[in-house]
């Protein structure tokens, strides 16, 4: 049961949060002009790295804000959390 540092509320128990999958996936604009493959890539395909993963989380039992987290998928450690819209943080060259 890990601890997660909500950028707004501070460090809280994992059970207050929910993960919504990979972060930094922008919804395409002008969707009508996309091929099935391009649209399918947005809808269906996600990375599944062993190591650093950028994820979208929500503080469901807290402030109900969405934020992003850098999680190491092997160690299950959150290396950083940051606000939506902020650039990917430098996590010290961890891979």
């Amino acid at each position: 049961m890990i601890l997660i540092n909500c950028p707004y509320c501070g460090e809280r128990d994992q059970t207050e949060f929910a993960c919504h999958g990979e972060a930094h996936i922008a919804r395409p604009t002008d969707t009508a002009s996309l091929t099935d493959e391009q649209w399918g890539d947005y809808v269906f395909f996600r990375t599944n790295p062993k190591g650093i993963h950028y994820e979208r989380w929500v503080h469901v039992h807290g402030c109900r804000r969405w934020f992003n987290a850098v999680r190491h998928t092997v160690q299950d450690e959150i290396l950083a959390t940051y606000e939506v819209g902020a650039p990917r943080p430098d996590v010290g060259g961890q891979q």
Binding site: C9, R12, D13, T15, E16, H61, G62, C63, R64
Partner: peptide, 8 residues
């Protein structure tokens, strides 16, 4: 005192 938190 003076704290409020949303939690579970």
């Amino acid at each position: 005192e003076g704290s409020c938190v949303q939690t579970r």
